[in-house]
């Protein structure tokens, strides 16, 4: 049994690498898109605010699995064929983006209006106000839910196996299909997911402590 699992390790490692790659893509892309759209939601002109609001509410109202199947099986109906890998990344990114938008909105809304006004009064431009006054203060509030979201992304990436992509989850299932060693392999999988997320939460706690000097 141990031999069989050892034999399958390189294959599992490939799956694990794919899980990390999907997670990384989703986390980075959704961070960029979510922060941009979140700024639009808070500071943009009314039409942009409505558009972002509708986007975020819609996406968050759809189960992520439905979203993934919609992107993979539904979009080809309007002529958009995405390879399963990118369909999965797109669906997970859309889902995560909607969350990041809300984290950003909440974090920025927690900063008193007087901060923006004081920044305006000394002549900072919009971009400078965000960079030097609002974001550094909002960061502390943004970080905890966002890190939670990152660990969700790692776990949620297991859904891509449903589109036939060989991530860690799919790799485990395939090895089980060959070896019939379900229990040890699922435990191994759980340990790996846990290890990644545990490392992430340790890192986040360290980050939070580093920024704890910013008082309310």
């Amino acid at each position: 049994m141990v031999g069989q699992i050892l034999y399958a390790l390189p294959f599992l490692a490939q799956g694990f690498a794919l899980t990390l790659w999907v997670s990384l893509l989703v986390v980075v892309l959704s961070l960029i898109a979510g922060v941009t759209l979140g700024v639009g939601l808070v500071y943009g002109p009314a039409p942009l605010r409505w558009a972002v609001r509708i986007f975020s509410d819609t996406i968050r109202g759809i189960p992520i699995l439905v979203l993934m199947f919609f992107v993979y099986y539904g979009l080809p109906a309007i002529g958009l064929h995405l390879p399963s890998f990118w369909a999965a990344v797109l669906a997970l990114t859309l889902f995560k983006t909607a969350q990041v938008i809300e984290y950003l909105r909440g974090a920025v809304a927690s900063i008193p209006k007087g901060q923006s006004e004081a920044a305006m009064a000394i002549g900072l431009t919009f971009r400078q106000r965000l960079t030097y006054v609002i974001f550094p203060q909002a960061f502390r509030r943004f970080l905890p839910p966002w890190i939670n979201g990152v660990t969700d992304a790692v776990k949620g990436s297991a859904l891509v196996s449903l589109l036939g992509i060989t991530d860690l989850m799919q790799a485990i299932n395939q090895v089980i299909g060959r070896t019939y060693e379900a229990m040890p392999l699922y435990i191994l999988g759980a340990l790996i997911y846990f290890a990644v997320n545990y490392a992430l939460s340790l890192a986040s706690r360290r980050l939070e402590r580093r920024f704890s000097f910013i008082r309310e």
Binding site: G114, A121, I122, Q137
Partner: peptide, 24 residues
């Protein structure tokens, strides 16, 4: 425009009732 407004505001100083210092 945004830059023009910012430059203009830099010519007036404002002190607020609630201080509004940057806490970070």
């Amino acid at each position: 425009g945004e830059r023009d407004l910012a430059a203009m505001r830099a010519e007036t100083g404002m002190v607020f009732q609630s201080f509004n210092l940057f806490p970070h």
